[in-house]
Design a protein around this nucleic acid. Structure first.
Lengths: 230, 230
DNA sequence: CGGACCGTTCGGCCGGCACCGAACAGTCAG
DNA sequence: CTGACTGTTCGGTGCCGGCCGAACGGTCCG
């Protein structure tokens, strides 16, 4: 019983700071923010923001992901988003409109969106799993492109770069915010998205940044390419 | 935007203390606790508890009610209960069983219970409104017993005390925790509960403290007395 | 390699707050 | 009235935590 009180108060303590709360409110949009962006949002020094992010991380409020010289931070899951929204709703109305707006936005984002430079959302996960089922991707101990997959990408995306031994990994499993499963990152993921945008599989949403809508043509093409219903 | 972050963090700050959280967890059962009981539950000095209660009060987490030398404290409403439970659910499972147990308990408590020494819950509210409809209670600018009501209580409860100009008010509107409407407190409310227990209208629940079950006899009697279906 | 940029670590400062005990005010019972 | 009890106020103490700037390690680019 006292353990429960301890852990709840500890968790509340993490949210009990103006700067950390400002960061969390920014993160409510479901996107990944860099540490510097969060520092600017909360209006504190980068060093201070770094400490705050560490605290949020330790409490399980956010997850992070290093990428080059950047540190991308996102909310750890829908549960913590719910806590923050509940907290906001009890303190007054001002969060409601934001909440509704983000709900609509995340609805669109959940279906299909860009994650940095590759495809994410329900469609991103479907593609990832389709590639795996088709034998183009092997997911034991990490994820690698099979020879068949390498050939497939070279043909579909017409980009030899995918197989080149550059510094960027060809494929990378990227945990999906909404689906909690992996979608395809890395050079191959980027190439596929580029190809899809060029060829009209997806259209960028005018209203919601990062959101994508699938065209009927894209739907047919992907089903065709993967040899499965997606 | 900064205003929102400010207010959310301020609210979270109130919950960000082991002692205050322990108090809130105790209050989750929906009952009113005295300041001393909360101090013992949180294992702090009475003076410390007093300060904590003031903080919870200022934040709108609880409401209080002085009664004699006691200060009764209860959660301000279902919304704050929801916040605390949400907070507990994200931090781990340990709150769930408690939550389920209290849910079952509050289910019984919602129907009929004692509030200090009078009837509360759905039945308490129904009786209050039945008395009003029957013209025994007038509820403009507070609540008073009509002459007819005074006679009714003298007859039914056989207690002249109800009309005596003692220090305790004859009737008092007591805001019901579950119904968010008034039930009957004061000397008349106490007399009515006493009469009901003596005459077998209600039985005390063995498992859940303060819970009451209505007997068929009680149901008939109340409907009869109030001249309405309750 | 050197310069630009991002993030982290480390002192050091400062304010706030949780806690207690003692003294005091109000209520109830005998 | 007296004594028992509940709750509040007020100093005083100690600690925790948020903040910054400076220095440093990594990464990307030319």
């Amino acid at each position: 019983m006292p353990v429960t009180a301890e852990s709840i108060s500890a968790f509340a303590g993490v949210l009990a700071d103006r700067s950390r709360t400002a960061m969390c409110l920014a993160l409510l949009d479901g996107r990944a923010w860099t540490a510097g962006e969060l520092a600017r949002t909360a209006e504190v020094a980068r060093s201070t923001a770094s400490e705050h992010i560490s605290a949020l991380l330790a409490a399980g409020v956010v997850t992070d992901e290093r990428q080059g010289r950047h540190r991308y931070v996102r909310l750890a899951g829908p549960e913590v988003a719910e806590v923050i929204e509940t907290l906001g709703s009890v303190v007054g109305v001002p969060v409601r409109p934001t909440s509704l707006r983000t709900a609509r936005a995340t609805g669109r984002l959940a279906a299909a969106r860009t994650c940095y430079d590759h495809l994410a959302g329900a469609w991103g996960v479907a593609v990832f799993e389709g590639l795996t089922r088709a034998g183009l991707l092997r997911t034991v101990d990490g994820v690698v492109l099979t020879p068949a997959g390498r050939a497939w990408f070279a043909e579909v995306c017409a980009e030899p770069e995918v197989s080149a031994p550059g510094r960027r990994p060809a494929v990378r499993a990227c945990l999906d915010w909404t689906e909690r499963r992996s979608h395809l990152g890395g050079a191959a993921g980027a190439a596929l998205l580029r190809r899809g945008l060029e060829d009209g599989w997806f259209l960028r949403d005018a209203a919601v940044p990062r959101a994508l809508t699938i065209t009927p043509h894209g739907r047919r093409t992907l089903a065709d390419l993967l040899g499965v219903a997606v």
